[in-house]
């Protein structure tokens, strides 16, 4: 799952880079040449990539929590296996992405500590609750669907190690998305209770999906380092439009109603009304839509969402609880030489 579409700290040039090297670096990127670790790169780029991969890794590790809550309740052997494998994939993605940042100079332990102490962020969408099995279907269909769209563009970025990792991750996201699609299709072809559960979950996750890609970029985003250096290659609004064009008609065909909702502090829906702003423009092929509640977005990202405290608290419990195992194997009493 992706974390990179959330606002990452704006990159600022440090101002004391060698102008010739910088020009050459930027020309390479403009020419579509990928950057490999041995290449010269501006310090701001190095730090920016480190932070981006770290944020993405954090999102995978925290993203494992809401779905993890449902492994013990999955309703069939196959769903139980699939959900366990899916959450396991997120952990695997986190491990691989931390590795990218480790190579850029920050230890994994420091990253895990900064995460649980709230010094670094993760993707906002994991601060919302998953109160039913329907939420699991929606997370895998909508959020993983959005993540694939976003990560396909990230795989078109410029930093070799991140691109490589993204390609591997996308392969596994394809399973997450298909399995989510299968769950949504099954539930919407099922009993009245199953359909209601699905609509309720859709009401919770549709606005979160629209916010998934982050707020609109600045008008001059293409001139700013993040896009100039191809750390990100598509504007948030453009990704959001593609997402809606694909998922709005699919949701309607499934019999789901696309609502504008209000939520309480627990992230549960308190009122719904159909989004009348949702109209297909036949000439452009684009669906118009009502903007999600961006005030809510900022409130949640600043730490005041329904589940922020709970997610970090469980993650910290896990970090502290497992400390003795890491200390035992790190102490060297069990180690062998680095190679046979």
């Amino acid at each position: 799952m992706s974390g990179a579409a959330n606002p990452v700290k704006p990159l600022e040039m440090t101002g004391n880079e060698d102008p010739d090297k910088l020009a050459e670096f930027e020309q390479r990127i403009a020419d579509g040449v990928l950057i490999e670790p041995g290449d010269w790169m501006p310090q701001a780029y190095r730090m920016g990539m480190l932070g981006m991969a770290e944020h993405h890794a954090n999102s995978e590790i925290i993203g494992a929590l809401p779905e993890g809550e449902w492994i013990t309740r999955a309703p069939s052997m196959r769903r139980k296996l699939a959900l366990t494998a899916k959450v396991q994939d997120e952990v695997g993605h986190g491990q691989m992405l931390y590795r990218v940042s480790q190579e850029l100079g920050k230890s994994r332990d420091d990253m895990l500590r900064d995460l649980v102490m709230g010094k670094t962020k993760y993707h906002n969408c994991f601060n919302y609750p998953a109160p039913t099995w329907g939420d699991i279907a929606m997370i895998q269909w909508l959020i993983d669907g959005a993540a694939i769209m976003n990560q396909k563009t990230l795989a078109d970025g410029a930093y070799g190690p991140y691109v490589r990792t993204m390609n591997r991750i996308n392969m596994e996201e394809a399973f997450h998305f298909k399995s989510g699609e299968d769950m949504v299709l099954t539930l919407m072809s099922g009993t009245r209770a199953q359909k209601q559960m699905t609509q309720d979950a859709f009401d919770r996750w549709w606005p979160v999906s629209l916010m998934f890609f982050g707020p609109a970029d600045k008008p001059d985003a293409e001139q700013r380092p993040a896009m100039r250096w191809r750390m990100k290659v598509e504007r948030n609004d453009s990704l959001r439009q593609r997402f809606i064009n694909r998922f709005a008609p699919a949701a309607m065909d499934l019999g789901l109603v696309i609502n504008i909702v209000t939520k309480d502090e627990q992230g549960l829906v308190t009122s719904t009304k159909p989004d009348e702003g949702l109209v297909l423009d036949e000439t452009t092929g684009n669906w118009s839509f009502t903007e999600p509640d961006w005030d809510e977005f900022w409130r949640v990202i600043r730490g005041n969402g329904p589940c922020n405290a709970h997610r970090l608290s469980l993650r910290r419990f896990s970090y502290e609880q497992g400390g003795w195992v890491r200390r035992a194997i790190g102490a060297g009493s069990t180690s062998m030489p680095p190679a046979a």
């Binding site: 993890g68 139980k80 366990t84 396991q88 952990v91 491990q95 896990s318 400390g323």
Partner: peptide
């Protein structure tokens, strides 16, 4: 059933993956 509940909460990422 009991062990899969650990997925994502194991003591180190590599063993979390293996145990899962």
């Amino acid at each position: 059933h009991v062990q899969s509940d650990w997925t994502g909460l194991g003591p180190l990422l590599e063993e979390d993956i293996a145990a899962s």
